[in-house]
Nucleic acid binder design. Sequence first.
DNA 1: GCCAACGTTGGC
DNA 2: GCCAACGTTGGC
Length: 139
Amino acid sequence: MKYWLFKSEPDAWSWDQQVAKGDAGEEWHGVRNYQARNNMRAMQIGDLGFFYHSNIGKECVGIVEVCATSAPDSTTDDPRWDCVHIRAVRPLLRPVTLETCKVEPGLEQMALVNNTRLSVQPVTPEEWAIVCRLGGVEA
DNA sequence: GCCAACGTTGGC
DNA sequence: GCCAACGTTGGC
């Protein structure tokens, strides 16, 4: 079991839209960055991730689960790009903002804080536990 | 809307 | 294989 973080601009794809997809989930398409893609290739079914709203909100708003391992991205013919499918598991009771993560002890090394441009990031178990606590949910 | 950070592309 | 130019992301 590994932990991740998925960024999305809510204008383009929001948590509410993700929730509306239900257990069927949705293809996390559109990633055109090797690091992010490699992270997705490392994912397994059942891995959990935070759903983060970039730009608007700048906060983790929910928890998602990987429900299909990496497969070709249907939005491109370029074989370099593939992606996983994720489904919404539950919302955070209180969103955890970037601002909070920046000052919270134990989150200094979070990619969210110091590698802002990476759109699919790994999260350590320690970071996962802290953000879940801040979000008011069980890790 | 601006711009810093950073990744990618392409000429040499 | 280097590096300048360029494009994109995302915080502010």
